[in-house]
Design a protein around this nucleic acid. Structure first.
Lengths: 217, 217
DNA sequence: ATTGAATACTTTGCATGCAATGGATACAGT
DNA sequence: ACTGTATCCATTGCATGCAAAGTATTCAAT
């Protein structure tokens, strides 16, 4: 693999895993030392990460993004309509019989896995499964533009909500919303799928906002 | 201005203006010669343009994006929900009285300008005014995430629909849809604004698809 | 002690050199 | 003539050097 891609991938992992916390600053020299390469590929990786919305150019060097409460809400609003679109398109494909039955059962399994991990308290795993579930719907929408946009948003949101991983006890609500979404897609009800997805996302946003408020007390 | 930013801006203009046609390939050396700078800033500009979705990395060098009919439809679908969101948020702000009256009148003027330029056959000008109109709504939504995403999409769509600038005679329909959207925002009817914006975008998409089909005959 | 300025240093932006990759071309063999 | 191969060339990826910009530190003066 090219060094630039390696740097981009590795730094992305470090940021998403919270090794580099939101707000933390990085310099080219520092990152180059850590990654054992020269400044050139690091430099390009920095630019790419800025484009990905994971870091911001902060005068000298770069700092991990730290979405404030309102920026986070903006990201969730966009995510809401995008997931509404992907769910709608997936349901539409199902209605037209363009979707293989296996794809639908795979989706159901992902939802079950997510619910199980959540119930068992395996938070990190639950987050991964959850993202896979939503990601699969994006794939099933057969709209790569929407899927790519969502990837970016998920990354950004994950960085800024990492601390609130100590999830509230709303797994039942999440599971119910997932089931409603799933049922709408399986039945080919595009409009309902759209609404279910968007409302689910906005609910998640509201839950995070409550967390944030509580933290500040 | 930094050379990298200069290169990025200049190349973006050249692509959006159609000087570099969709599909055209560019090499670092070539662009560096045209822009009278070394390969380093050009290289970074290329990466940025790839992230902007204006060019794709094509093995050796880079080529101007050329969205196929279905990719274009995907872009329009995403644009549809995003403009639905911005219109909805703008209407919501209006309903809450968070919007200055001057902002609304400015918006109306932009719509009138666009309609006038279209009627007079000043195509390039009409496109500019049109984009400003939609862009203003995005600004009024007060959601920078959505606004930034839309900027990218507009760029991509503009590149790939440049040839079909010889617009069909649907200016009346466009004007009517703009008025409906405007009225919904002015009245603070969020849901209707959302629907009006999304339907307007999808109509534009359908119109372009008809153009494309006709061209192929 | 605090403020001001001057100096030194850290860090980035850009250019250039070098090695490696990938593709095109030419040549030979069947 | 066509295919396979080998060679050559264009172009990119990465490293390093140098200059500029901005920041911190230190020293002096009030």
């Amino acid at each position: 693999m090219q060094q630039t891609d390696a740097a981009r991938t590795r730094l992305r992992e470090l940021i998403l895993d919270g090794v580099y916390a939101p707000g933390q600053r990085l310099t080219e020299l520092e990152a180059a030392a850590v990654l054992a390469m020269s400044r050139t590929p690091v430099r390009e990786a920095f630019r790419a990460l800025v484009a990905d919305g994971l870091v911001r150019s902060a005068g000298r060097g770069v700092s991990v993004v730290e979405l404030g409460p309102q920026a986070l809400r903006h990201a969730y609003q966009v995510r809401g309509v995008l997931e509404g679109l992907t769910a709608e398109l997936a349901a539409e494909r199902q209605r037209r019989g363009e979707m293989a039955p296996a794809e639908l059962t795979a989706l159901e399994r992902l939802a079950a896995d997510a619910q199980e991990a959540t119930a068992a308290g395996r938070l990190a795993e639950a987050v991964r499964h959850n993202r896979r579930f939503h990601g699969r719907i994006a794939t099933l929408s057969a709209n790569p533009v929407a899927a790519a946009s969502l990837e970016r948003l998920w990354d950004q949101i994950q960085v800024s909500t990492r601390r609130s991983l100590a999830a509230p006890e709303r797994p039942d609500q999440v599971a119910a919303q997932h089931r409603r979404l799933l049922a709408a897609i399986a039945a080919g009800r595009a409009e309902e799928a759209h609404a279910a997805a968007r409302e689910h996302v906005m609910d998640t946003c509201a839950a995070h906002e409550r967390d944030g408020t509580e933290e500040e007390r």
